[in-house]
C-alpha cells in the first residue's frame, strides 16, 4: 500500500459519512406515508443508508491514497442500490391485495423510486462533502450541512394540497341509486342496505383544482387512487371482504368534465378535518406532475364571466 507510510487523512471520510447518513435518516423520519412503520423496515433502510454514505465518502480518500482499484470497486458497489427500488416495489405489491384500499401502481412506483433516490442522494451528499473536506475541514463541515439542507429542500415533493382545494360536500342519492357527492356522480349502488350506510355514515369531499397542474393531477387515475388510499388510512373505512361497494371512491365530474373531483368514504372515525388534512398531504405523483392541460370548458366559462 502506497499510502501506508504516509498518514491518511480520515477527515473527508468521517465528515462525508456523517453528512450522507444524516441526509438518509432525515427522510426516514419525515416521510410518514413512505414508511413501512415497523422496526425491521427502519433497520433495513438505516443499514443500506450506512453503506451508501460509506461508499460516497470513501471514494475521495481512496483516490487521494492512489488506491484506484478500491475506487473502482466502490462504483461497482453503488450499482447494488438499483435493487432497492425492486425490493420495495415487491413488498408494496404483496401488501396491495392484503389492504382494504390499495395504493395503486402509480403510488407504489413513486414510493419505490423515492427509496432508491434517497440512497443515491445520501451517496452524493457524502461524496460532495468529502471532496470539500479534503480541501478544508471546517469548510467541509459547513458544506455538509448545506448539502443536507439542499437535498431536503429539493427532494420534498409537492403535496396535492398545494394544487387543489378540498371542501366538504353532501352525500346523496339521485334517481334512486346513483351516489352523488355534491355535483359529482360517483357510482351506482344497487343494494338498499349499502345506500343506507352511505347516507348514515358517509362523508363526502369535493376536490377543486386551483390551476391546470392541479387539474391534470386529478385526471390521473393513479393520483386519485393514492388520494383514496391516504383518506382511508387517515379516517379508516367501514369495509371488508364481501362489501366491495363500500370502497372509498374518487371520481371526476362526468360527463361534464369540469375538472372537479369528488370523494366518498364511509369512515370508521367521523373526522372531517383529519380526512381533509390527509388528502391535502397526499404527494403529487410523478406520472401526473408535469403534463399541463387546459380545460377548454373552464376557459369558456371564465371568459363568459
Amino acid at each position: 500500500m502506497s499510502s501506508a507510510s504516509a498518514a491518511v487523512n480520515w477527515n473527508p471520510m468521517i465528515v462525508g459519512f456523517i453528512a450522507g447518513f444524516i441526509s438518509r435518516v432525515l427522510y426516514l423520519r419525515s416521510g410518514q406515508s413512505h414508511n413501512p412503520g415497523y422496526p425491521s423496515g427502519y433497520i433495513i433502510q438505516i443499514a443500506i443508508g450506512v453503506i451508501a454514505a460509506m461508499i460516497g465518502s470513501s471514494v475521495i480518500v481512496s483516490l487521494i491514497g492512489k488506491e484506484f482499484t478500491a475506487a473502482t470497486f466502490l462504483t461497482l458497489a453503488a450499482t447494488q442500490f438499483f435493487n432497492v427500488r425492486t425490493n420495495e416495489r415487491h413488498t408494496l405489491e404483496q401488501e396491495e391485495s392484503l389492504i382494504l384500499v390499495g395504493r395503486g401502481a402509480g403510488y407504489i412506483e413513486g414510493i419505490a423510486l423515492t427509496y432508491e433516490a434517497r440512497n443515491f442522494l445520501g451517496m452524493l451528499v457524502a461524496l460532495a462533502t468529502s471532496v470539500v473536506t479534503a480541501w478544508n475541514l471546517w469548510l467541509g463541515m459547513a458544506a455538509g450541512l448545506a448539502f443536507v439542507i439542499l437535498g431536503e429542500v429539493f427532494m420534498a415533493g409537492p403535496k396535492i394540497g398545494e394544487l387543489i382545494d378540498v371542501e366538504e360536500a353532501e352525500v346523496k342519492f339521485d334517481k334512486g341509486s346513483l351516489l352523488f357527492v355534491g355535483p359529482v356522480m360517483m357510482m351506482e349502488v344497487g343494494l338498499p342496505d349499502s345506500r343506507q350506510r352511505f347516507l348514515e355514515d358517509g362523508l363526502g369531499v369535493i376536490l377543486k383544482p386551483r390551476d391546470t397542474r392541479g387539474e391534470s393531477a386529478l385526471w390521473n387515475i393513479a393520483q386519485r387512487q393514492a388520494i383514496a388510499h391516504q383518506a382511508a388510512v387517515a379516517v379508516g373505512v367501514q369495509k371488508d371482504v364481501g362489501y366491495p361497494e363500500q370502497t372509498p371512491l374518487c371520481r371526476m365530474e362526468m360527463p361534464k368534465g369540469t375538472g372537479l373531483a369528488g370523494l366518498a368514504i364511509i369512515p370508521v372515525e367521523r373526522n372531517l378535518e383529519a380526512l381533509i388534512k390527509a388528502i391535502r398531504n397526499t404527494p403529487v405523483l410523478e406520472s401526473g406532475k408535469w403534463s399541463k392541460m387546459h380545460n377548454t370548458k373552464n376557459k369558456k366559462e371564465a371568459a363568459r364571466g
Partner: peptide, 29 residues
C-alpha cells in the same frame, strides 16, 4: 330480489347494480 342480490354479493364479493327495470346485475372486478 334485494335479499338474494345482497347474499350473492356478500358471498362472491360482487358489486350490485340496479338497472331500474326490475333487474339487478352483479359484477366482479
Amino acid at each position: 330480489r334485494d335479499r338474494i342480490a345482497m347474499w350473492l354479493s356478500r358471498i362472491t364479493n360482487a358489486i350490485v347494480h340496479d338497472l331500474h327495470n326490475g333487474t339487478v346485475i352483479l359484477t366482479v372486478n
